Simulated assay, not measured.
Amino acid sequence: MSKGWWWIAVGAVVVAAWAARGGDSPETAVPPPRATASDTPRPPAPKPSAKITPSPSDWSTNYDPASFAVQVRRSAGRAGIKPQLLMAILYNESYKPHDPELERSWQRIKPDAAFGIANMHRAAFNETKRGRPFAGRSWEELPDHPELAVEAAAWHLHDLAARLPSRTRGTFSKDELLALGYNTGSGNMRAFATGAKPGAQAQSYLDRLHQNWAKAANAVRVP
């Protein structure tokens, strides 16, 4: 589905939710009190150069994949993949809102939609979690638990790497093939590894990966 249709659908869900709550009620609105000289001064605003990391309660409102650099480095290390690759994929998948309630509302419209900040489908998550430390977790938890989404994505990339042919043809690097596999599935990834050309959607995903590559490296740099 194109990004335009995604935003139209999400907008419809938000409007419906607003209408169900009755919207704003101007008749009952109370104007804010007028400030006086005796009011306690507010503390100074943070300096523009200071980076504010979203708290657990508002991470989806101010979502930035770089906020999960610690989780990315940890999960990538355990899964044996590059943290830069995992972070670049999170940037690739950050195009849509990741508010948990919006994700669930969209999933009710489109049952095969992906969940979480890594946009994983149910089948991929359930296959990846087998024998892993998060085997007891469920796909439905992904919207509320970005750390679980990061861990699952890391191990999914690990599993894709294990399915690459021992010898590849063409110009794609291992990281590029893994990103293509994440986007299009392991079967297509193997085809690309043996010389097949990606279609428009897969090529667009790869182009975004290249655009996000340097930003991802900066995000996961060791403090």
Rank of each mutant, 00 (worst) to 15 (best):
W7Y: 11
Y182G: 05
S166M: 04
A113K: 12
E101V: 01
A17S: 11
A35T: 07
S138A: 13
I81P: 01
G11S: 13
T168S: 09
R137H: 11
T168N: 06
A153Y: 03
A20I: 10
D144W: 13
M120H: 15
G136P: 10
A69V: 04
E147C: 03
V14T: 08
A76I: 03
T128V: 13
I109R: 15
K110E: 05
L148H: 07
A37Q: 14
A16I: 09
Q211G: 12
A19M: 14
S55F: 06
Y91M: 09
P146M: 09
P26Q: 14
S38R: 15
S186Y: 04
F68S: 03
E27G: 14
S166W: 03
V13D: 13
V30I: 14
V222L: 15
V150H: 04
N218C: 05
A88W: 00
S57G: 13
P32K: 03
E127Q: 11
K96T: 02
L177G: 02
L86A: 10
N218H: 11
E140P: 03
R167D: 11
P133C: 07
H158P: 10
V10M: 05
K82L: 10
P65I: 00
F115L: 15
S186T: 09
E141W: 05
S38N: 15
G170S: 00
P31G: 11
A214L: 15
H156Y: 12
N92K: 11
A12K: 08
D99G: 09
L102Y: 05
K3D: 12
P165T: 03
A45N: 08
D159R: 15
P65C: 03
P44L: 10
W5D: 12
V150R: 05
A114T: 09
Y63N: 07
T171S: 14
W155V: 04
G187P: 06
H210A: 15
T36C: 06
N218Y: 06
S94K: 08
H145M: 12
D159H: 13
I109H: 14
G23N: 10
H156L: 08
D159T: 04
W18K: 14
A45L: 11
P44H: 09
R221G: 07
P31D: 09
I8H: 02
L157K: 13
N183H: 12
L102F: 04
L180R: 02
Y63H: 11
R34F: 05
A214F: 12
A69H: 03
